[in-house]
């Protein structure tokens, strides 16, 4: 704080010419590439008036696509928030063989193209495969071309979000507090609930929400595993793709507006929870 003050005071009144250029470049870049497209899609979606927008958005296929996206992403977010927190906990606090490998493969979903994820899931759970055939014939569970396949794809790509958000917080926790609680007779569960959980809760929610927002718009893997059946396995992103291909721009725009709105609210919510340590 003290250090930053004189530097800031010195830098503010006469910003050198070059720095103005950098600022202009940065702002232009962000506006042209990000702000304008977001504004354009909203104008395009509402251009025909609210009535038309409403008609487009309340079509059964559109509604069911939006709802499918939201609930599958929601299921994924809940499962991965729990499993991700557990994974982070195990990675930070325990020592076991294969730990380094586990820590490395967690980033796999960030690296693998989502379309490839889709192909992998088809090969794993397709009706002709060992697992897919068993689930289908013995248990009557259809994975591909149905919501379970979509959820599996989302689980894959959403796994790292909570882990990578919670891990650094856990690693930075003050061990003394836990030991104190433990010494005072708290069980490890009570210690976790009263000491650890409150500390990592914001990171869990942040990671979960980011994963949710990311999963809402997922396209590459879902278009492969879902089979694109309207009203049954067609998510919002796939619906938009279909409408654009078919030249039905109004329908594509209105669903885009809703999808974008949800992502925006969630992202801003994360920003709010997190109060991003203002990099000043």
């Amino acid at each position: 704080m003290q250090l930053a003050f004189p530097a800031k005071a010195a830098a503010r009144p006469h910003l050198p010419f070059g720095e103005w250029g950098l600022r202009a470049a940065a702002i232009t870049y962000l506006i042209v590439l990000i702000a304008i497209p977001v504004i354009v899609i909203n104008i395009e979606g509402l251009r025909g008036g609210l009535d038309l927008f409403w008609t487009d958005i309340t079509r059964p296929a559109a509604l069911s696509a939006l709802w499918l996206s939201i609930w599958t992403a929601g299921v994924m977010a809940v499962v991965n928030t729990i499993m991700g927190t557990l994974t982070a906990y195990v990675l930070v606090f325990y020592k076991f063989p294969g730990k380094r490998l586990l820590d490395s493969v967690i980033d796999l979903p960030f690296a693998i193209p989502t379309l490839v994820t889709g192909v992998m899931l088809v090969l794993l759970y397709g009706p002709q495969t060992l697992i897919g055939g068993f689930l289908d014939q013995q248990l009557g569970i259809r994975v591909l071309f149905a919501p379970p396949g979509i959820i599996l794809a989302l689980l894959f790509l959403g796994y790292p979000f909570v882990i990578r958000a919670v891990q650094p917080v856990l690693a930075g926790l003050d061990a003394n507090q836990q030991e104190a609680a433990f010494t005072l007779g708290a069980s490890s569960w009570v210690t976790f609930r009263r000491v650890v959980l409150p500390a990592i809760f914001p990171a869990m929610i942040t990671g979960g929400l980011l994963g949710f927002a990311r999963a809402l718009g997922e396209f590459g893997s879902i278009v492969i595993v879902s089979g694109n059946i309207p009203m049954r396995s067609q998510t919002a992103a796939v619906y938009i793709f279909g409408q654009v291909e078919g030249g039905n721009m109004a329908a594509a725009s209105s669903v885009s507006v809703i999808l974008l709105l949800v992502s925006l609210v969630v992202t801003l919510g994360v920003d709010f929870i997190y109060r991003r340590k203002s990099y000043a």
Binding site: R214, L216, G217, F219, G220, A237, I240, L260, S263, T267
Partner: peptide
């Protein structure tokens, strides 16, 4: 935003 906006959009 690019993290969360659907690529299709």
């Amino acid at each position: 935003l690019p993290f969360v906006v659907s690529p299709v959009i």
